[in-house]
Design a protein around this nucleic acid. Structure first.
Lengths: 177, 177
DNA sequence: CAGGGCATGTACCAATTGGTACACTCGTGA
DNA sequence: TCACGAGTGTACCAATTGGTACATGCCCTG
């Protein structure tokens, strides 16, 4: 399964064929159908696993509560922009594009795409004493900006420029340093 | 051509077939090949036309120079989130996803995806007296946030929440109102 | 050894794809 | 009237797709 996600992250989901995937991970397309029932179920599993990886990234971050919010955000940003994750991030945007078209294997993702990320962020801000309603908008803004800059980074590869913009944002967001 | 873009904006590019498109706009798939040479050339034209539409949106906005930057941004945001443009925006994200995979018909878009939008924004800020280097980062941040919130809106449909987050951002960005 | 599941490979199928060959129409200019 | 070239419909093609039928092997329990 993990091999499959790696392959899909590297090659994309758009023109994925059971035969291609099978050949890459060493089984016949016959077996993929046998294990997953259909290509659609396979894609559902791939999407779920990919989501899980993203979530793991966030939860692993929460282990160190000594950080200031700004530094925690910086650390998360650093991890998200790790070049080794680029394939995974591309896959995220690609799946998002498919989900917008109502593809059934990607549709469940739309639901949690924002809200599932908002919740821990809001919880963190509320725990720090913020007003819940205000915190939700702020979290929404932070999430959107991170994703927008990630989109920029993947498109342009201009790491320095994007990092500078992120630093600007952090200063606006958490107050001037 | 415009009919073709409308159809693609409505149905997506992922599983587009010449026959499907042809039937929708009243020609045979044979004719599409005849006019465009191949499916790939057709997609290139569609992407170009779609880009052109987006650009037109921005340039049409520049007609009224009496607005404050914040109000101009608000107006642009209103236009971008017009429900009638939703198909077009979805198409944008979908094409972006494909471009990340190196699809030849979408690759040229990656170049201009950020820079072509940055230039007019930077020019506007510099004309207002900003330092060019600072302005570029700021513009980059603004563009990313707009796109991130657009992604949020398309995924959740929560117009009120996204608008509130945008208002938060404008206050951070242009100073508290 | 016998037998029964599970896993797997081979061969196949119908459907759909982009693209091509060819014939046909129709307006225009000589 | 004739020739001709652009536009178009019909029929077709090879390739690829997801999915299935069937046989074969392999391991485990009796």
């Amino acid at each position: 399964m993990n091999l499959a996600v790696d392959y899909v992250a590297a090659h994309g989901i758009a023109d994925l064929s059971l035969r291609g995937l099978g050949a890459a991970i060493g089984v016949s397309h016959r077996m993929l159908i046998h294990y997953f029932g259909s290509k659609e179920h396979l894609l559902v599993e791939i999407v779920r696993t990919s989501e899980q990886r993203q979530r793991d990234l966030l939860s692993r971050l929460r282990l160190d509560p000594g950080l200031s919010p700004a530094d925690a955000a910086r650390l998360l940003w650093q991890q998200l922009t790790d070049p080794r994750l680029a394939g995974q991030e591309r896959l995220f945007f690609e799946i998002y594009g498919h989900a917008l078209r109502g593809r059934p294997e990607a549709a469940p993702l739309l639901e949690g795409l924002v809200n599932d990320w908002l919740e821990p962020l809001v919880a963190a801000e509320v725990a720090a004493g913020a007003d819940p309603a205000v915190a939700r908008n702020r979290a929404r803004l932070g999430l959107a900006t991170v994703r927008g800059l990630l989109l920029d980074l993947l498109a342009t590869g201009d790491r320095a420029g994007v990092n500078a913009a992120m630093e600007d944002f952090l200063q606006l967001y958490y107050g001037s340093k």
